[in-house]
């Protein structure tokens, strides 16, 4: 009787299984690595209509965030400054610079500069800036070192897991209220001492300010 299947086919089931396992593993690894806001959002850096630099204004000039983002500690929403805010200085500084043409135009005719929004939670999530900023949560926890960026990019994933990571234990992130807009601030230059001070003072602030650990769904989905 002739051999229908050659000898190597004995290995075939094993090969198929191994191939599928490898391919499946690769696809799973790819999906977990790429199909997440940690990949899709982080690093988003749109081209802005005016090459405005936070590194120059907030870093080098040392301006406080609230000079421009005035509503950040009063409302849920953090505003983008109007062109007249820029013109407080740029009526004298770089008065005829072509990079600022759009700002001058907007200040005279009132048509807003079309800044591209970078951070945006889904519309079914309720977010609030003032409650965080007023409770000693610094901009740096959610936006990174904006004062060192020439162009703002998305630093944190802003997923539910990210929010909950802090809401479960705010003591690990809380800082004195006056240091909220001082992004480079730390308790101490020595990392160990700083961690210790964060631990003791964090617990103290959470107790003194009666900071809650908000984990029920209705806090953010209302």
């Amino acid at each position: 009787m002739p051999v229908i299947f050659p000898k190597w086919t004995n290995q075939l089931p094993f090969l198929i299984a191994a191939g599928l396992a490898l391919a499946g593993g690769a696809v799973t690894a790819g999906v977990t690595y790429y199909f997440t806001p940690k990949y899709s959002r982080v690093g988003y850096e749109p081209i802005q209509p005016v090459p405005f630099s936070h590194a120059v204004h907030a870093g080098q000039l040392g301006m406080d965030c609230r000079y421009c983002h005035t509503t950040v500690e009063k409302s849920w929403f953090s505003n983008i400054p109007s062109a007249s805010t820029c013109m407080n200085c740029h009526n004298q500084v770089l008065k005829d610079d072509p990079r600022l043409a759009l700002v001058r135009e907007s200040a005279t005719n009132g048509v807003p500069i079309p800044w591209v929004q970078i951070h945006r939670v889904p519309d079914y999530v309720y977010f609030n800036h003032s409650v965080h900023v007023r409770r000693g949560i610094s901009c740096v926890e959610c936006h990174g070192r904006v004062d060192q960026m020439d162009e703002v990019h998305h630093v944190q994933s802003l997923t539910m897991a990210f929010c909950l990571n802090c809401h479960r234990d705010p003591a690990a992130f809380i800082r004195p209220e006056s240091k909220v807009t001082d992004l480079g601030w730390q308790w101490n230059t020595n990392a160990d001492v700083a961690a210790e001070m964060q631990a003791t003072n964090g617990v103290k602030f959470v107790h003194d300010w009666r900071v809650q650990s908000l984990q029920n769904c209705s806090a953010c989905h209302r």
Binding site: R41, Y44, E45, P46, I47, N79, I80, P122, D123, Y124
Partner: peptide, 28 residues
């Protein structure tokens, strides 16, 4: 696709955006 966190000019992909982007007015 590159590494996680690489700088990109393209807006994040949203596969089914109907709940994320609802018909309501947002400030500014």
């Amino acid at each position: 696709a590159g590494l996680r966190g690489h700088l990109s000019r393209k807006p994040p992909v949203e596969i089914i955006p109907d709940m994320n982007r609802q018909f309501k007015l947002r400030p500014e």
